[in-house]
Simulated scan of single mutants.
Amino acid sequence: MNREKELRYLSIEKLETRKTEDDKMTISGYVVQFNKRSKVMWDFVEVVAKGAFRESLKNNVIKALWNHDSNLVLGSTKNSTLRLLEDDFGLRFELDLPNTNWGRDAWESVRRGDVDGVSFGFFVIEDNWEYLKDEDLYQRTLLNVDLFEISPTPFPAYGDSQVSCRSFEEFKTSIEQQNKNELNKRKMMLELDLF
């Protein structure tokens, strides 16, 4: 089986940073949101299905790189400086940056908002293609991928990825609130359908 390495550059609303009293620098956000479209890439758009990263998260050592540069390693799941979690919303990450020149530069670029996207590198294990006649383009759905790296980047392909520099507790609270708002919307819609 000949697999090609693929990279996706994602645009996000918030790339979060936080700095603790011991000068530990952390960024967090979403690598990708499930079932949200990428920008048009050539003649297709792409979405990532919930569960596409499940096997990778169980089996792979995944690295965080600066803009896909393997000379600038920012973290790793091997030593838990990179933490990844699939939730109902997407693939969430939290990354403790190294106290190196490129780690401090990365933190500052994210803090200032100059870098506000996340990208990911992967091999496709399973996908599905569908022609969208009304839009005259194809939609590719990633069902199972072999994820090997994520990267903060200035040029993302997915408009809905998120990364920022704030406390993880604030971040969790904002995501929990988004999820509650979505559930309340669904509940209200169900109630309206009953009447």
Score class of each variant (00 low, 15 high):
20 T>H: 07
146 D>V: 01
194 L>R: 14
36 K>V: 04
46 E>Y: 02
95 L>G: 02
89 F>Y: 14
83 R>I: 15
172 K>R: 09
140 R>L: 02
83 R>F: 14
37 R>C: 06
193 D>E: 13
67 N>W: 14
35 N>H: 11
73 V>Y: 07
24 K>A: 10
132 L>N: 13
120 F>M: 11
43 D>Y: 10
110 V>R: 15
119 S>C: 06
191 E>L: 14
185 K>S: 10
135 E>C: 04
74 L>R: 01
33 Q>G: 06
183 L>V: 02
77 T>P: 06
89 F>P: 00
133 K>W: 05
106 A>S: 13
30 Y>V: 00
152 P>Y: 11
69 D>H: 08
170 E>P: 01
91 L>S: 02
162 Q>I: 09
67 N>H: 15
38 S>H: 04
7 L>S: 06
75 G>S: 02
11 S>D: 13
52 A>N: 02
166 R>M: 14
188 M>A: 10
98 P>N: 05
139 Q>M: 14
4 E>V: 04
87 D>N: 15
66 W>C: 07
105 D>K: 11
150 I>E: 05
24 K>S: 11
4 E>H: 10
32 V>G: 05
37 R>F: 15
90 G>K: 01
10 L>P: 01
94 E>I: 12
86 E>F: 05
55 E>L: 10
142 L>W: 00
106 A>Q: 07
44 F>K: 04
82 L>Y: 07
187 K>Q: 09
186 R>G: 03
158 Y>E: 07
122 F>L: 00
38 S>I: 00
13 E>M: 10
84 L>R: 03
99 N>G: 02
95 L>I: 00
55 E>N: 15
152 P>A: 06
97 L>G: 06
71 N>P: 00
93 F>C: 02
7 L>H: 04
66 W>L: 14
106 A>Y: 14
38 S>N: 03
122 F>Q: 00
44 F>I: 00
8 R>I: 03
